[in-house]
Design a protein around this nucleic acid. Structure first.
Length: 125
DNA sequence: AGCGTGACGAGTA
DNA sequence: ATACTCGCCACGC
């Protein structure tokens, strides 16, 4: 017999373990800080940046998705303004564009905003 | 089973 | 700064 007909409907009762862990990390990122997809994957020691990205794309709506960003500090396409609004409200370090061109939104200052997942210290002083 | 696509990342030109 | 390539893993056709 082939097990291909296995319903496997258990998946609806709860999110996949991996997704749950990714969301858990996203929730534990302190305000004013961000983590890259790759960092989350590394912190979890599972999957890769693309897997984290997939989870965020599917279930990110349930967590502060704006605190999980790309390594280059670019804002989320389609949610740039929404994310920017959160960043300004939380005081997340942003890097203003040198050339004030229309549509040229600021990017995250990863050097300062990147969170290592350790202590939530303000990192300074 | 192959191929394209994606809320990615790093390297190179 | 941008553009392109390759590596990565999961999903859909």
């Amino acid at each position: 017999m082939s097990e291909e007909s296995l319903p496997g409907a258990r998946a609806e009762d709860a999110l996949p373990e991996y997704a749950e862990r990714v969301l858990d990390v996203a929730e534990r990122i302190p305000p004013g800080r961000v983590m890259t997809y790759g960092d989350v994957a590394e912190w979890l020691e599972a999957g890769g940046p693309r897997q984290v990205g997939r989870v965020m794309a599917l279930y990110g709506g349930a967590v502060p998705w704006w605190r999980v960003v790309r390594s280059d500090g670019a804002l989320l396409p389609g949610h740039e303004l929404r994310a920017l609004d959160h960043y300004r409200a939380e005081g997340t370090p942003l890097k203003e564009a040198s050339r004030a061109a229309e549509g040229h939104l600021p990017r995250l200052d990863m050097k300062r905003a990147r969170w290592d997942g350790g202590e939530d210290a303000d990192g300074h002083t």
